[in-house]
Amino acid sequence: MPLIHDTPLIHSLEVGGAVRHSNYSTSGSNTTYTGSGLWKPVSDLLFRASYAQGFRAPSIGELFGAESRSDAPIDDPCTNVAGSPYQSSATVRANCTANGVPANGSYQEPNGGQLGVLTGGNSALKPETSRTWLFGGVYAPNWARSSGFASQLSLEGNYYDIKVSDAIAPVAAQLTLSRCAETGDALSCAAITRTSNGLISRINAQLQNIGGIRTRGVDVTAIYRSPRTSAGTFGLSLNGNILLKYTETFPAATGFTTTDYRGTTRGFPDQSYPKFKGNAVVDWDIGAARASFTGRYINSVKEADGKKLDSTFYGDVQLTLAPGWLENRLGLTIGVNNVFNQDPPACFSCTGPNYDPTTYDVPGQFGYIRLSWGL
């Protein structure tokens, strides 16, 4: 809804809103609201803000999915080996003994072993709810176009604050082991099943409402395109994310505990949370040909044991030909991703391929050819 237009310091002022009502046979009913505002003091400058509520009912798989087992490469803090928490802390030894580890110190986790983690649906799950705040601004100066400095120039920044309550997720198996050994948390210890000699037969990581997820950050974008010249058009696009916060809150026997994942990699299940990620695209367009280079940067992260996954930079190149005599309908694209053949950093706590496939590329270069026809 437009409110004010073309007055001093208010080139335009608009507000918006929405309401949504949901009803599920498995999760009941819920009503959510959103609201937004947009203010342009002058034609070149825009400020915006929004507030949104969210509601997500658990899916059929999350509610009724069958149990399955996976093997996680994680460390048992109750193992009696040099440098382990079991040897350095009397509290850990007492908690481990209470959890079924032999009091004589005979238990040692098998070298190179993986611990069985049981996952599956949970019919007692409640819906997730969320709230999101977003504040942002865009500067796109008319003088840059009118002076011939650029055919496009814009700077954009957005701050977000997202909170998810009753988030649906498994409790990380490593966290379960650590909380049982270090604090004797009854819920965590109950999720661990051991044999008579102390070996872990399974860790229960069934889906549950973990408590909450909270994340805050800043997204920044800058775009420049040159005027058309005899040498073609040049462009530069920069995008970055600064992660200010990422925490998850887990239920405990007495209240909740919070884990900060910012600047770390979770391991099992694989997921990394770098403090900064960014990419840049440089392109050149001259009639029937367009070439571009994309650089992707991921800041370093740490595993739970302090090992560092170094910062990573990927480079991608692409060339597109669209002959003018076919009215640019035919397009031939040739490209190579990871042209520098950058390997992902090794992750000792990650599953399967020993790196985090949710954040980093599959090792090796990837080349492709694409032929397209547009009407």
Rank of each mutant, 00 (worst) to 15 (best):
M1T: 06
M1P: 03
H5G: 00
I10V: 14
V15D: 01
V15W: 00
A18C: 03
S22E: 11
S22R: 12
Y24D: 15
T26D: 09
N30M: 14
Y33W: 14
R48A: 01
R48F: 03
Y51D: 04
A52L: 05
A52D: 02
Q53P: 08
R56V: 14
A57C: 05
P58N: 05
G61F: 08
E67F: 11
S68P: 00
D75P: 06
D76K: 10
C78A: 02
N80W: 06
Y86W: 04
A90M: 07
T91P: 00
T91I: 12
V92K: 04
V92Q: 10
R93V: 07
A98L: 10
A98S: 12
N104D: 15
G105A: 01
Y107S: 11
Q108T: 13
Q108I: 11
N111W: 07
N111E: 13
L115F: 08
N122C: 10
A124T: 09
T129I: 14
T132F: 09
V138L: 05
N142S: 12
A144S: 13
S147H: 03
L153I: 00
K163C: 01
V164I: 15
D166L: 08
A167I: 10
A169Q: 11
A173W: 01
R179Q: 15
T183N: 13
D185P: 12
A186H: 09
A191L: 00
A191P: 04
I192T: 06
G198I: 00
L199I: 00
N204T: 00
G211Q: 03
V220Q: 08
R228K: 09
S230Y: 00
S230T: 10
G232W: 09
L236A: 13
L238H: 07
N239P: 06
G240P: 07
G240F: 08
I242Q: 09
L244Q: 14
E248W: 02
F250N: 10
F256Q: 14
G263V: 04
G263T: 05
G263E: 09
T264N: 14
D270P: 08
P274K: 02
K275C: 05
K275F: 07
K277Y: 06
A280H: 04
V281M: 14
I286N: 11
A291E: 01
S292N: 11
F293I: 15
G295Y: 01
V301K: 14
V301P: 12
K307Y: 06
L309S: 04
T312S: 13
G315S: 03
V317S: 13
L321W: 15
E327A: 08
N328I: 05
N328Y: 02
R329F: 05
V336R: 00
N337E: 15
N337Y: 06
N341W: 01
P345Q: 11
C347F: 08
F348N: 13
P353M: 10
Y355A: 12
P357S: 10
P357C: 07
T359P: 05
T359D: 01
G364R: 02
I369K: 10
I369H: 06
L371W: 01
S372F: 02
W373R: 13
G374M: 04
G374A: 08
